[in-house]
Design a binder for these strands. Structure first.
Lengths: 353, 353
DNA sequence: CTGAAAGCGCTAACAC
DNA sequence: GTGTTAGCGCTTTCAG
């Protein structure tokens, strides 16, 4: 039973080295004003005692914690957790620790306790990684936040004075539709995500916009709404084919719902991609193994997370220097088109065209 | 532009209320020794000033942070992130904050900096939510950890003196095989996860054990090894059918690989479930929409996370009271069998049996 | 019941 | 270069 003594304090190191705590502090902070000899000696003692300065005490006296608060929601879904992964990566690289809070209800409006808690832990900034759903952004108008610490918002409508990072939902949707048009599909429906989600609306308007751009008329009956789940995809797909019988392709709001569509098409004997082209959104790792493999829009969640950290760190630094609040433009992380079989018409594959 | 003044300190509250900081402290900590009148008055000032005590300062003087460190890996996969979700939930309920670190390499052995960092942030305990892979547990033997703070380990081999929480991998695998046997399948192969993963080995040995229990001989040629990905599932499946042509059912180490199997079966014209029964492991949300819907073992990641928090909190409390280290038995979170079409033989469905 | 003094572990500001 | 003093914001003695 090896008994490692409790961690050393700066005071203990100081007395062991025969110097003041101040000198030790200077050494651990790599300050220039220490004689090489003293520095070396102190460093030795530090290594020997395995001394690690208390980040807590440091935060208190420096009034800076090198800690970021992350507020997330829906960690059990792959998108949010990938984003979180990007955040952990970039935060580590930037030398920040992360305090994480998960909101259990997307529509939650009990925002205050969370901020209070984060504030009490002296975070230097907050990443609000909760998607914009319903009116869960109303508090932004009301509270004079951002006085206590800067905030970067993820996946929401750009607003002046706010730093927002999102994936290119609108642009991605346009790409998906553009691709289907190129393939020769004529009647492209949309199975949307829930429209109280900002991202759902963005994707839908990308679809609509691109179709209109091609000179087509777009009716509401060309769409049906799901709730992101495969099950809802099944339902909405049935609704869609009855509303829009001519439909020969569908842009689906996410891959899970697209999976429901593929399953039903299989059941109903609808040939994908020849009778029905399908493109999803997200590029979840399973989608390459759906049947047929699903064309989709790749969303770089990881990079969204990394970008968020970079932005917040930038803002923190800026605030340190000048008192003035710099205006920040919204950042959009590019999406890309992944073409697989579910949207490749036979005539375009081989030579019989 | 509403300017909210910086957060108040206890000193400011005290002077505003005309009492000592001590009395304020007593009020915010709900100590009994304050006169009702004073308490009410102070409370009013607190509310008025919107005062929130600094958790940092508190942690420092109390030598207790009510903060847990969580070390995780593979957040971009659904399992780890669900577990994390369970952790955030239980931690919030228990009144603990979470500092999260993500390891980017399962086999990482640069463990020290992580612990040092957590230690410097005065965490009360750590949840080591990194699966046991290769020799990434060797450091446990070497370091005299647990002196600084208690640790709960997830998804690893039970060891004396350590508190370990895992899902019932072994038991789940046995259930899967038992179910296939009941369905009348005779030659049950196994497409395992990577065998340097403890969980992969557990599932494999559950398969083997259950088959042997049924009086069957088990050969190594009845198995092939994947790496959890759908792609590896495709490869390993091909290997398996050539090694084990009689195979009429396969227990697959996770749902993603099972997806690869289903896709190939479809391509090769093998009828699932009639010619080949398939059972996966994990019950990812998509698996109900595979074709055919996948039978699988449900793993309650959320509960694993919650249990981990409960255990660590328990240990923290115990250590506060008695100095002695209590022995903790390993905890296994139950898995359950989800029966869908991929393992239901036709003869067992209808009446023609 | 309430307050004064000391301290948690570290750093900023000023002496020497 | 180095040490001293004060203080970050709170809690824990210990008086009274």
């Amino acid at each position: 039973m090896s008994l490692k003594s409790k961690r050393a304090t700066i005071k203990e190191v100081a007395s062991a080295a025969g110097v003041s705590t101040q000198t030790v502090s200077r050494v651990i902070n790599n300050r220039p004003d220490v004689s090489p000899k003293t520095r070396k000696h102190v460093q030795q003692i530090i290594d020997q005692m395995d001394f690690q300065p208390s980040a807590l005490a440091r935060s208190l006296s420096r009034q800076r914690s090198y800690t970021l608060g992350v507020v997330t929601a829906g960690l059990k879904y792959i998108g949010p957790s990938r984003t979180l992964s990007g955040i952990t990566k970039a935060a580590e690289e930037a030398g920040y620790s992360l305090i994480i809070k998960e909101i259990r209800d997307f529509n939650a409006n009990h925002i205050e306790p969370i901020f209070q808690n984060l504030l009490s832990r002296h975070v230097d900034g907050v990443i609000w990684a909760v998607p914009e759903v319903g009116s869960n952004r109303d508090w932004i108008e009301k509270s004079p936040l951002e006085e206590d610490f800067p905030i970067v918002y993820l996946a929401m409508e750009a607003k002046p004075d706010l730093c927002v990072v999102s994936a290119g939902n609108y642009e991605g949707a346009r790409m998906a539709v553009g691709h289907l048009l190129e393939q020769g599909y004529q009647h492209i429906g949309h199975l949307s995500g829930p429209l109280d989600w900002w991202e759902g609306r963005q994707r839908k308007s990308g679809w609509r916009n691109r179709l209109e751009e091609s000179g087509r008329e777009v009716k509401e009956s060309y769409t049906a709404e799901g709730n992101w789940s495969s099950e809802s995809g099944v339902k909405a797909f049935h609704q869609l084919i009855s509303q829009y019988p001519e439909m020969d392709a569908v842009f689906v709001g996410n891959d899970q719902m697209a999976l429901g569509v593929l399953q039903q098409a299989c059941k109903l004997g609808i040939d994908v991609p020849d009778e029905l082209g399908v493109v999803g959104f997200d590029n979840i790792s399973e989608s390459a193994y759906f049947w047929p493999p699903l064309s989709t829009i790749n969303q770089n969640h990881l990079q969204v997370g990394e970008t968020a950290v970079e932005e917040i760190v930038k803002i923190i630094e800026e605030r340190r220097k000048e008192k003035t609040n710099i205006q920040h433009n919204p950042v959009t992380v590019a999406t890309s088109l992944i073409i697989r079989e579910s949207s490749l018409k036979e005539m375009n594959k081989g030579g019989t065209g």
